[in-house]
Design a protein around this nucleic acid. Sequence first.
DNA 1: TTTTACGGTTGACATGGATCAAGCCAACGC
DNA 2: GCGTTGGCTTGATCCATGTCAACCGTAAAA
Lengths: 247, 247
Amino acid sequence: MAQTLPLNQDITLSVIKTACSSCNLRELCLPYGLNLEELERLDDLVSTRRRIKRGDHLYRAGEAFDSIYAIRSGFFKTDVLLEDGRDQVTGFQMAGELLGLDGISTEHHTCNAIALEDSEICSIPFNRLESLSREIHTLQHHFHKVMSREIVRDHGVMMLLGTMRAEERLAAFLLNLSQRFTARGFSHAEFYLRMTREEIGSYLGLKLETVSRAFSRFQEEGYIAVQQKHIRILDVNGLKALMNHRA
Amino acid sequence: MAQTLPLNQDITLSVIKTACSSCNLRELCLPYGLNLEELERLDDLVSTRRRIKRGDHLYRAGEAFDSIYAIRSGFFKTDVLLEDGRDQVTGFQMAGELLGLDGISTEHHTCNAIALEDSEICSIPFNRLESLSREIHTLQHHFHKVMSREIVRDHGVMMLLGTMRAEERLAAFLLNLSQRFTARGFSHAEFYLRMTREEIGSYLGLKLETVSRAFSRFQEEGYIAVQQKHIRILDVNGLKALMNHRA
DNA sequence: TTTTACGGTTGACATGGATCAAGCCAACGC
DNA sequence: GCGTTGGCTTGATCCATGTCAACCGTAAAA
């Protein structure tokens, strides 16, 4: 049956649709700044798309590394496990962000990447990305910027964990989510959390009860409206003020 | 006077000595894995050495970024400042390690790098490093590994700040220092701290008093001998056990 | 519709580390 | 030699967050 199917417009379109060159995230993701010809060369490399169901691993700590992943849609968390069972969420990633950069260092993944909702990712074989970025200066430079941005982000988290108190951490967390949703064209003021209180707590170095209490407190103060995972930010400046409060 | 000076052997030698190809840190630093010809091409790029006196800044947050720096000798800290005056030490760097990777992202440095003892650094103009790594695959790959290693290291710090208690953090810190001194051919068991208790505390998300008490406690337990900045590790396994103690 | 399960909320209490305060030690200048 | 200074140690007390426990709400399963 497939062989009798005409190569019509629809098929062409659907092929194009899986390519970076027609991805609506290209201004956020790896293709940023590339011209059309360069984009097409990147397309060759990013051919594989994969669906990851909610709760499934994209990769696990210890597995051999050979690709990095761009999130096409959905939501992930990454976490690190200590031998003694403690674990720490190291980040939450959304559409247009890259996963797997930690694996380059040892050629093995050093954390787990788990989908928090049904998601779709693009695999980018790393050795091919390296060779292409030897040819496309813009791609090389942008990739370096992405890695560097990850380092800067991590410093921000260290700041948060090292110097902020519970409510400041949560305020920073909400403002960060809000800003990232905005960059993706969603409402800055209203969104659904994809993660549990426990996962938020793990990321922020707090217990889930503390997260829950802080949410309640924010609601009492009129900064936000919470109902379970649904968040509405009512007073951005209030949250910002709270964050920079201490001397 | 300078113009009458003969171009003698000594001068040639001193020039060679400032090159990566004859640097005894090359197996730890950027040149790792390069062959002789490649090393010489890197030498062209890393011509500038600079001395930084104890307490001086190598760069400051906000300054334009154009180079990364390799530590030739000495010891640095990096820190981030919040508007409200709080600050957090994000890392301590020693010989063979790179500084400034955070600046690639925004083309401005995002943290301060301060020498904790009189130090010497090699400047590496970043655009030239990028073009050279487009030509030398090994260099490109190694640079990516170094950036990735920084990300992994930061995850380790997040783990530490997010899930460990004071004594565990300090034990992890001492073991990490010890391991890095070992990699540089120094004693794994005996060393001088270059940073104050306050700087350790800032890095570990603790107050200086807590750091001091933890040192005293380690000494009472016979894990270490401390005298001011001089540390002797008496029981590595004790420290390791302490780190993995909790369930 | 009822049951079950999981995540979330809230309260009471415990505690690790922060804070405040005093004093000590070593290096340095006078 | 003596005072000063900056960093370190130690003690007493306080408080933010952890811990433990009960209960609630929502959504999926029966």
